[in-house]
Design a protein around this nucleic acid. Structure first.
Lengths: 268, 268
DNA sequence: CCGGGAATCTGGTCATACAATATGATCAGA
DNA sequence: TCTGATCATATTGTATGACCAGATTCCCGG
């Protein structure tokens, strides 16, 4: 078994933050409820109050909890959690299934990446394009599947950076850390040639400054990636159960809602 | 002058985190460089090492710095910062201009909100729809501009939640905190009737479960919002200077890249 | 039954001390 | 002189104990 993370295992307060955070995401303490007091946590795991306080500070940074003075530390509603944080994501995956997680990840990518490619085409500088090209070259030169995935991540990450829009960057960071862990399985060697063509299309349209073409190229690549994932899933285990609150009748026909298809809009 | 934030002013370690974080974003210490040692910071502002450590822990949570044991605390590259964090955003706006900030914000919204509306249409439960409707009703019943903006924020935020995709939620949180501070100016009363129509269109398409129609409605609303902001900006001060790295020739004609227009894609 | 005050609980801050290691300077040897 | 090992120092991580002030709770008296 691999160690879960890089940052959380080194320090004691990281380990404590890991346990508490995992418990919160798992639902051990409901949103709005109070955590055990600091002294209580100290006794629970035989650590000093310093460690507990720094651990809670870490969880506060992830927006999992909110410490109000002299009143206690309460769990915030999940809607306010920083789900893009890699630790929160890891804790979530300890209980949730990977299937719905990958589906949601693709929903986000389908929403963001076409726009990111279009923005990159008009905002990227020569250094940005060189970075994207380096990712592409790394994919072509990759000897192993792992090298291929790493280069692929660099490619897409560089597109996010090339938008020159900082708001896109945290999303790229999340994808980077999460795809590195979960996508060594995918990208089997057989469909690499098509991946080369599609990635090269994105690279060249961005380099050419053609935003609409870059968006279209990104959409094509995502559509094929979705098909790959769906093919991989259909040959695997059971799929996601319906969400709990669900009562309405209408549902998307396919597994993944058609977040890609779009229609024109007035240009003014 | 208003106080800058809610969370940072109460505690001492929050104030210290505010000063250090502000300095980092301002560029006082370059990415990759070392912060002053903890004891040095203690002397600088006459605080205990406890508060300094908790302040640095807070900044670590925002991915501004990375503390390696016995080596020092280094500033991470800006690409890894959590730009969706409200404090990071506030520190950034202390030096950057509001114009380019609003433009980037709209780029993100144009990328995400149409997809969010489409997802919400197929994933929302009755509670989600009720929440969106409550936002719409609040807009209609709003007596003041401030009430109108608050209800508007609830409307859009609820759409993000209704996607049932956690990855969209941090974006909604960022928009919530940032639009509340910067958009009391906009939404002048004269174009409210059109806003009602467009918001109602989104609400009803989502309630009807029509994803494509919801996406189209969201796109229409965003296009008009962009026009409003552009109109507001053109009657204001000077605009953003070109980015420093820029060398290439092609640039978008308009102020804001056409991140909305798209073309069809194959459905399989 | 209600209101007020005291005891208590909690997080925030400070001070001190020790541990362990990364860093850089010093020193010995080739 | 250059190289390599050793050592002192600086820095973060952790523990401990103490105190403060606001929030909560509960009991007692009206």
């Amino acid at each position: 078994m691999f160690k879960t993370s890089e940052t959380m295992t080194r320090n004691i307060h990281g380990q404590i933050a890991d346990r508490i955070g995992s418990g919160i995401v798992r639902g051990d303490v409901a949103p709005g409820e109070l955590l055990p007091s600091e002294m209580r946590i100290c006794e629970l795991w035989n650590v000093s109050r310093t460690v507990v306080r720094e651990a809670i500070r870490t969880l506060t940074g992830k927006r999992l909890v909110l410490s109000r003075a002299k009143s206690g530390t309460r769990v915030r509603p999940p809607e306010e959690w920083n789900w893009l944080d890699q630790d929160v994501l890891r804790w979530q995956m300890e209980t949730s299934d990977v299937d719905s997680y990958l589906a949601k990840l693709f929903q986000l990518r389908c929403a963001v990446e076409p726009a990111a490619a279009a923005l990159a085409a008009v905002a990227a500088g020569p250094l940005d394009v060189a970075r994207i090209r380096a990712g592409y070259d790394g994919m072509v030169a990759a000897k192993s599947d792992e090298d291929f995935v790493i280069a692929d991540i660099i490619f897409h990450e560089s597109i996010y950076f090339a938008t020159r829009n900082e708001f896109f960057w945290p999303i790229a960071q999340m994808l980077k850390h999460t795809l590195r862990k979960n996508f060594t399985i995918s990208s089997g060697g057989d469909h690499r040639p098509r991946a080369f063509v599609e990635h090269r299309a994105i690279l060249e349209t961005i380099a050419a400054g053609d935003g609409d073409a870059a968006r279209a190229a990104a959409i094509i690549l995502l559509a094929h990636s979705i098909a790959d994932v769906a093919r991989m899933r259909d040959s695997g285990v059971a799929t996601d159960p319906p969400p709990p609150q669900l009562t309405r009748a209408r549902r998307s026909q396919g597994r993944i809602p058609p977040a890609i298809s779009s229609r024109g809009m007035p240009s003014d």
